[in-house]
Design a protein around this nucleic acid. Structure first.
Length: 427
RNA sequence: GACCCCAUCGUCUAGCCUGGUUCAGGACACCGCCCUUUCACGGCGGCGACGCCGGUUCAAAUCCGGCUGGGGUCGCCA
């Protein structure tokens, strides 16, 4: 049976690279069938934090993935020491300065890699490796090998940065008498400029993207595209579908630069294509997490607002500023509306208000008809009336379609805001 | 520096394994036009790549070698 694992270290939040490694493991095992093990590599007690652990698990779930088993290395120290002792007894390791060193002789090592094919090592920089530190805790390479063997992991999918660890790990498998698993080394995700992913490049943790208004489905989809393509030119692929068509042999070998523009595009696609109920729920959750929504807000109203912005939103956070006028009327007319506000249309706007007040039904089609008639009757081009009205209602020069906006805000609110503009002109 | 990996438009990629159907297809970004009450959406069009040099071959983006460039690793971190 296929068994793979994702082995995060809870010394930081789940970042983009880790999320993709997790994703490719998950896709591979869910497609072929098998078990997915989550192994928490918390051997560095100093740096490991439960806060990080919780966030990592939460992020994985949020992205839509699950696991079959979870293990914690911090609970397995006895096992590592036991195997270290075994190696000492067999003369393959020795103790020095309180640490245990694994000795190896080296000829050449061949890795058969699922994404890269054969990788040959002709020499190694050292002839021994610490496996148990002097504080009695295991080193990464040792606990990793012991656990992968004991947990019967037969395919190790991890980042390319582990390629150079692989030969010494293979030597350990052999020294311990374990079967060597298959390996698949994924290309690294590079910073937007193509260099090393660094702290300089801001948001790299999944939680930050979530807080920034990205949809989990969009992040997963984008990550999927970083190093893999279905081959038929499609870009929008759900996790569920990816599960069926993913092929690890088609993963690229070259590192991929992270592109925010493309992520944004994918996110906007998901926003556009999501059904309104689900999107509204996402929006409500998001806006609540930002403590943005007024206390007594009606979810039907939020849905109306979401409909207004669905086609023009890139991130949910766009609602925080572009959609603010839908929830608050405390805005000031922005600086760039000055040229529109220069023309006093107080009389015309008043006429419009009258018309609005006397309408029977206040839906967008009726509003549009009434609005156009009013403009014509006043000898104005529609746009000459549209612009100031938009400023009145939103405080801005740009926004969603005006007639829909009027419908969403409702007659009472619209009239109130139009009055405010007239007062502005009169003073 | 040593070891290892990689190399198609600015970016993500298809094609490369099984050489000719490709003066290289798609997407993002960018530019232009159309639609239009603004901004977007959408539609149409444009710009733009096989890193270089050699070899193999009738024929190379596709196979081989070198060079160059980028990346990774060289911790009693993981």
């Amino acid at each position: 049976m296929l068994k793979v694992r994702f082995a995060p270290s809870p010394t930081g939040y789940l970042h983009i690279g880790g999320a993709r490694t997790c994703l490719f493991n998950w896709l591979y095992v869910r497609k072929l069938g098998g078990k997915f093990v989550l192994r928490i590599e918390d051997t560095d007690v100093e740096r490991s934090k439960t806060e990080y652990l919780e966030e990592i698990l939460e992020s994985i779930k949020w992205l839509g993935m699950d696991w079959d088993q979870i293990h914690y290395q911090s609970q397995r120290f006895d096992i590592y020491r036991e195997y270290a002792q075994k190696l000492i007894d067999e003369g393959k390791a020795y103790k020095k300065d309180g640490a245990v060193f694994f000795k190896y002789t080296f000829s050449e090592i061949k890795i058969n890699d699922l994404v890269r094919g054969e990788i040959m090592f002709n020499e190694l920089p050292k002839e021994e490796e610490v496996i148990i530190k002097s504080d009695n805790s295991p080193t990464y390479n040792f606990s990793c090998v012991i656990d992968d063997a004991l947990m019967e992991i037969n395919c190790v999918i991890r980042g390319e940065d582990h390629i150079s660890n692989t030969p010494k790990q293979i030597l350990m498998y052999e020294g311990l008498g374990f079967k060597v698993p298959e390996f698949a080394h994924l290309p690294l995700i590079l910073s937007p400029s193509g260099g090393r992913m660094s702290k300089r490049f801001g948001a790299t943790s999944i939680r930050e993207y979530k807080q920034d208004g990205y949809l989990s489905q969009a992040i997963v989809n984008y990550l999927l595209l970083l190093g893999w393509a279905p081959g038929d030119n499609r870009e929008i692929i759900s996790l569920d579908e990816a599960k069926n068509i993913f092929d690890i042999k088609k993963v690229n070998k070259a590192g991929a630069a992270f592109c925010m523009d493309k992520l944004n595009w994918v996110n906007s696609e998901y926003i556009k294509n999501k059904n309104i109920k689900d999107l509204t729920q996402d929006v409500i959750n998001y806006l609540q997490s930002k403590e943005f929504l007024p206390q007594d807000i009606d979810s039907n109203y939020v849905q109306k607002v979401v409909e207004l912005f669905q086609g023009r939103m890139v991130k949910l956070s766009d609602l925080l500023d572009w959609g603010r006028f839908c929830f608050y009327d405390d805005y000031a007319y922005s600086e760039e509306t000055k040229d529109i506000l220069d023309k006093n249309l107080s009389k015309e706007v008043s006429v419009l208000m009258e018309k609005f007040s006397s309408m029977d039904s206040f839906d967008k089609d009726a509003i549009e008809k009434e609005f156009r008639n009013a403009a014509q009757g006043l000898g104005l081009k529609t746009r000459d009336l549209v612009h100031p009205v938009r400023v009145a209602l939103t405080g801005r020069k740009v926004g969603p379609g005006l007639f829909e906006t009027i419908e969403v805000l409702g007659r009472q609110e619209v009239v109130k805001r139009l009055k405010r503009l007239c007062e502005y002109w009169e003073n």
